[in-house]
């Protein structure tokens, strides 16, 4: 379920927790997304966006670790 696409936050607006929004870049396509559920997200972070709503900030350390593991498979 549920197609969620990783994109990079390029700007954030709105102070109120539930009205936080931002511009998110997917490849070279930029779209507005709701950032209410990723209060910790900062500009430059990658978020996972589903149906116009960011549902997670992607953890770069975990991603790097997973790719390391993939590299080690014999």
């Amino acid at each position: 379920m549920c197609l969620a696409t990783p994109g990079q936050i390029i700007s954030i607006e709105g102070d109120d927790a539930l009205s936080r929004r931002g511009q998110v870049r997917f490849g070279e396509a930029v779209r507005d997304a709701c950032l209410a559920f990723v209060p910790e997200a900062k500009e430059g972070n990658y978020v996972l966006v589903h149906a116009g709503v960011a549902i997670a900030v992607l953890r770069e350390d975990a991603a790097a670790r997973a790719l390391d593991l993939l590299g080690q498979i014999e």
Partner: peptide, 18 residues
Amino acid sequence: NQYERAVCEAGNTAAQAL
């Protein structure tokens, strides 16, 4: 958990609250 870059044990607590 294979998908650690996007999933933590507690999930998204801000979303769960709403």
